[in-house]
Design a protein around this nucleic acid. Structure first.
Lengths: 150, 150
DNA sequence: CCAGCAGTTGACGTGAACGTAAAGGTCATC
DNA sequence: GATGACCTTTACGTTCACGTCAACTGCTGG
């Protein structure tokens, strides 16, 4: 659970993920697009990871022949995924949330779902922290016991 | 990492794990011994888990024919293993520590090694907690942002 | 004598999140 | 036209801590 580099969350080079908002889904036509390793470098992950995410249905880059082409929207989406991952969502969670940003869902429903998931996650994280604190206390105690024996 | 039931740590029914001290390694000869499911029940784990630990070289019960027989020392050892597991040591860590309690090692060396590992673990746990706190903060922030949009 | 249970072994499955070949395509450049 | 950098695919490997199954043995009670 060693929280992955939070540094990868800033979506370098552009619109710093305005949360779940995907401003211009058609930006790909307007020129700016990225290669797989562009994004890999930008977010400090491997191309393999990105392909994996595609395989898992998290991103859907377009193709020029067989090569993946990532639009700004794709990049933002990836940033979103990484942000979710960084705060401990499973890929399944992330997919579930992302699926809500498909056509046919109301925006407020999307936001509400995201909010709810986030709150659940916070609760889980707080529980984890409490457990962690307990463990730390126990181990510290254990250390003291050992020190006494020396 | 959902800290496994800390309740299983008390070594029910006997010497409540006086830390890494195995008082009477020969108690098995003095009568008291346990079956695999005795211990499984006592520690609320499955027999499979115990066999797995044996396969991993963490416990070495004696045999009567093909049946495993667990002495009090074995039981204490198992309690020790579970305690280690509960505080987040990997089985590899645990094995490493347990190996030090083999003949030929000085007791103070054993204690020192255990102490060191424990301190490392505490440091790791504290780092984890800090990361967790940061994540919680970030997620809370994220929630606020979403709330504003609604 | 036989059912039933507790025990044994070994092999394979699980899940998460990728990593690691292997084998090949495509493109600009020297 | 050959080299190298980059891209593609499929497919199997990894780590951890077991769970699940199958097939078997051995003991005890009725």
């Amino acid at each position: 659970m060693a929280a992955p580099a939070l540094s990868a969350l800033s979506d370098p080079g552009g619109a710093v993920l305005p949360a779940p908002v995907f401003p211009d889904p058609d930006l790909s036509a307007s020129g700016e697009s990225f290669t797989i390793s562009d994004l890999a470098r930008a977010f400090d992950i491997t191309p393999r990871t990105i392909r994996f995410y595609e395989g898992e249905g998290l991103i859907h880059p377009t193709r020029r022949g067989s090569q993946r082409m990532f639009s700004r929207a794709d990049r933002a989406r990836l940033a979103w995924i990484l942000r979710g991952r960084a705060v401990g969502f499973s890929l399944a969670d992330i997919r579930e949330l992302l699926d809500m940003y498909a056509p046919g869902q109301s925006r407020s429903a999307q936001l509400k779902a995201t909010l709810e998931k986030s709150r659940e996650r916070i609760a889980a994280l707080e529980a984890q922290r409490n457990a962690l604190d307990a463990t730390i206390a126990e181990l510290s105690d254990f250390c003291r016991t050992i020190e006494d024996k020396i």
